[in-house]
Design a protein around this nucleic acid. Structure first.
Length: 337
DNA sequence: CGGGCCCTGGAT
DNA sequence: ATCCAGGGCCCG
């Protein structure tokens, strides 16, 4: 669920309060959340225990904790030649899937009084799957109703282009597990004209291209619909039918929507997306198309339409989002006119 | 590149 | 009982 703005809200929360802390414990309540961890819980424990969180980094919807050797009781240095605090070379990957949350808690467990009065369904941690215990007694909890998210360790590798790998660290290092993920729309190192050109080499519908994390990352169903609405592009327009100017504008508009969403804490439809303190974002009230079937388009008043698209739903204004025009000729030459 | 699948739970 | 949900990956 959470798309780039929501994951960035979580990243900022963790960066502010977990960096510098040492991981002292790992609690696995549901092993399915470690599905992507080879070697399972034991391997993850070996990577995490005693490690200090040195940075929280994000690329698209993928989040990772950089890990350094923590303080050792006997003062020994575990890494050959490195000083105390050297990077371990492994990152802790986190993906929230559709329903994942990372919460920072002070160690309190469910409130019995609330449970008695409102029932267990009111417990925000009832889908807690994994907890990392930190040296100040607090916890990072992975809460994930649908179990599409998860945690796993992945070795850091150099970013091929030598540029900062993601938001939250200046280093050109990213986890192997995120190496296939393209830069996202809020990444200062992204080359938008180049992404636009690549979109125009593809025949797939433009919405599928926006959702292709290997082309441009961080966009999910909500921001794809909102970006297409803002740029007045119909979801089924083939990439190759876009002018360079329109493709570029679409990317810029989608980035602008995400920036506005980030500024108000992201989009929450329900309790399934919240920040590390359990608070909702406010962007849902600013959506123009997503989830607005039958409601008037904020631009022209025409009812927003919804239809199935690649197994999901797509929302658009049938009037001001132009239907794709049949390709006039080879879309090979540069920008029209 | 579309389709099925991984899951749970709320709404209808 | 059935449908639906904001993601990603593997399959053919």
């Amino acid at each position: 669920m959470p798309e780039l703005p929501e994951v960035e809200v979580v990243r900022r929360g963790l960066a502010a309060r977990a960096v510098g802390r040492t991981i002292t414990g790992l609690e696995v309540l549901d092993a399915r959340s470690l599905r992507r961890q080879s070697g399972g819980e034991d391997r993850l424990r070996a990577v995490l225990l005693g490690a200090r969180i040195s940075a929280v980094v994000r690329r698209g919807k993928f989040l990772w904790l950089r890990l350094a050797d923590g303080p050792t009781a006997d003062g020994a240095v575990s890494d050959g030649g490195g000083s105390d605090g050297a990077e371990t070379g492994e990152a802790l990957m986190a993906h929230l899937g559709m329903s994942g949350q990372l919460r920072l808690t002070t160690g309190e467990t469910p409130d019995p009084a609330r449970e008695a009065s409102e029932g267990p369904a009111s417990d925000p941690l009832r889908h807690r799957r994994v907890s990392l215990w930190l040296d100040d007694g607090s916890r990072i909890d992975l809460v994930d109703q649908r179990l599409f998210g998860g945690l796993w360790a992945s070795p850091l590798v150099p970013a091929p282009d030598g540029l900062p790998a993601g938001e939250g660290s200046p280093d050109a290092l990213l986890p192997e597990a995120a190496a296939h993920v393209a830069r996202d729309l809020l990444d200062p190192a992204i080359d938008l004209p180049e992404v636009a050109r690549r979109m125009r080499t593809r025949r797939a519908p433009v919405k599928a291209l926006l959702l292709d994390q290997a082309l441009v990352s961080g966009i999910g169903n909500i921001y794809a619909d909102e970006g297409l609405w803002a740029a007045r592009v119909r979801d089924d327009t083939p990439g190759a039918a876009l002018s360079q100017r329109t493709a570029h504008a679409l990317l810029r508009e989608t980035a602008a929507v995400m920036r506005r969403a980030l500024a108000v804490g992201g989009t929450s439809f329900d309790a399934l997306y919240v920040n590390v303190d359990g608070r909702s974002g406010y962007f849902a009230r600013s959506l123009a198309a997503y989830g607005k079937e039958g409601e008037p388009c904020p631009r022209c008043g025409t009812p927003i339409r919804r239809r199935a698209f690649a197994g999901r739903s797509s929302h658009f204004c049938p009037r001001c989002q132009r239907a794709p025009r049949p390709p006039r000729s080879r879309p090979t030459e540069g920008p029209s006119r």
